[in-house]
Design a protein around this nucleic acid. Structure first.
Length: 283
DNA sequence: TTCCAGGGGTAGA
DNA sequence: TCTACCCATGGA
């Protein structure tokens, strides 16, 4: 575990913990998640921290291969292997920012698969956070793999489950016009025409990665920047209504009509750490 | 009713 | 490159 790692800090570093199948239990500082594993087992995982130790409990007996897979997924989701020391050093000059970053160390929670992060990012576009949570909950409840002992607990749906259930997706999950994008991406992954997980390898340059993300239906500049953040590339700001409101209020004296260049300006000096500098900028 | 929310796609200039 | 318009959904 990285020095100073805090599970509560990382888990709540942005809103993803509130989107199914994640659930954060504040009273016990436990991150819950239902995962479908390679052996076919659907398990309820509970992630907690005890001092310098991260504990992952499964309510189902797991094979050695499943245990290895769980470990890999948890490491990815909590960014245990990501080196953010340079960002931390740059923050040190600004006590307020430093305090804002401190709980998570700059680690933003992500999902085990890029497929899940892409879908959830699309679910944040042109809607309210309450509706994003509701759409994610319906997606999991309707198309996720059920836990054997508690069918109300489900994993995040596979691309195949989405691809082969268009009518159910439209009628029961109700993503609005986002149905078409999610369906297309699911079908392309299921058919082998698209390999999203390959984008996690780190081999592509940030501009090339951005280009690939922008080629996905339903992914524009905002979503691509958000997904670059998911992939550990923080160069690009995700300009949305939240960022606009924040920059106008904090840096532009409440100006209404503002060019995008003006909105980006306060974070230009942060270079490859722009996204994090904005994200943790005290409101 | 009307507006619009952590935007995206498209046509037309 | 920029602007205008439409896009399902559901809450205010």
């Amino acid at each position: 575990m990285p020095a100073g790692f805090s599970l509560p800090g990382v888990a709540t570093s942005h809103g993803w913990y509130a989107l199914a199948p994640y659930r954060w239990e504040a009273a016990t500082l436990t991150l819950h998640r239902v995962e479908a594993l390679p052996s076919g087992v659907v398990a309820h995982l509970e992630i907690t921290q005890d001092g310098e130790t991260l504990c992952v409990r499964s309510d189902k007996e797991l094979t050695a291969a499943d245990i290895g897979e769980v470990a890999n997924r948890v490491r990815w989701c909590l960014r245990l292997d990501e080196d953010l020391s340079e960002f931390g050093e740059l923050c040190a000059a600004d006590p307020e920012l430093c305090a804002s970053v401190q709980p998570s160390g700059g680690r933003l929670l992500r999902c085990p698969t890029l497929w899940e992060d892409v879908v959830k990012t699309i679910l944040t576009t042109n809607t309210t956070w309450a509706q994003t949570k509701a759409m994610a909950a319906r997606l999991v409840a309707v198309l996720g793999a059920p836990h054997p002992d508690a069918p109300s607990l489900r994993s995040f749906p596979t691309p195949e489950a989405v691809a082969s259930n268009e009518e159910t997706l439209v009628a029961q999950v109700r993503l609005g016009y986002r149905n078409a994008s999610v369906l297309k991406i699911g079908r392309d992954i299921a058919s082998g025409a698209l390999d999203l997980e390959a984008l996690k390898s780190g081999e592509l340059s940030t501009p090339e990665l951005r280009k690939r993300l922008l080629s996905l239906p339903g992914v524009g500049p905002y979503a691509a920047a958000t997904l670059l953040m998911i992939l550990g590339r923080y160069d690009e700001l995700a300009v949305d209504t939240e960022l606009r409101a924040h920059v106008r209020r904090k840096y532009l004296g409440g100006a209404v009509e503002t060019a995008e260049k003006q909105l980006r300006e306060p974070y230009e000096k942060w270079g490859r750490w722009r996204y994090l500098a904005y994200w943790f900028d005290p409101r």
